[in-house]
């Protein structure tokens, strides 16, 4: 039961990642690409947590937390750069 659910959810998340990649490639505006990148971060967190459930270790939790933090910081840095043309003022 659980292994089936894990496989199904892994397929769903990989499909979601492919769609994000599609949006990242076609754009059309820079903001669309940033949004796609941000969604890819969140999807990859889910994929890592899913892998943790599959292998039965909670070792990957730290990796997921790091991606969550770096994802937010990089998204806001990119937005800030677009808004002001400078990251650190």
């Amino acid at each position: 039961m659980l292994s089936w659910a894990i496989a199904a959810v892994a397929v769903l998340i990989c499909a979601a990642l492919m769609m994000n990649l599609w949006r990242l490639i076609i754009g059309p505006s820079v903001q669309d690409r940033i949004l796609a990148l941000d969604t890819m971060y969140i999807n990859s967190i889910a994929l890592i947590v899913l892998y943790g459930i599959h292998t039965g270790t909670s070792m990957y939790f730290e990796a997921a937390l790091m991606i969550a933090m770096l994802g937010f910081v990089s998204t806001s840095a990119l937005c800030k750069y677009l808004l002001r043309g400078d990251i650190i003022e």
Binding site: A5, A16, M19, L35, T39, A46
Partner: peptide, 19 residues
């Protein structure tokens, strides 16, 4: 656990579908 996983997976998929 499987129900929560499927719920989460479906919402992730729908979010990216919206994108």
């Amino acid at each position: 656990v499987a129900c929560f996983l499927l719920l989460g997976g479906i919402f992730m998929f729908v979010g990216s579908l919206g994108l």
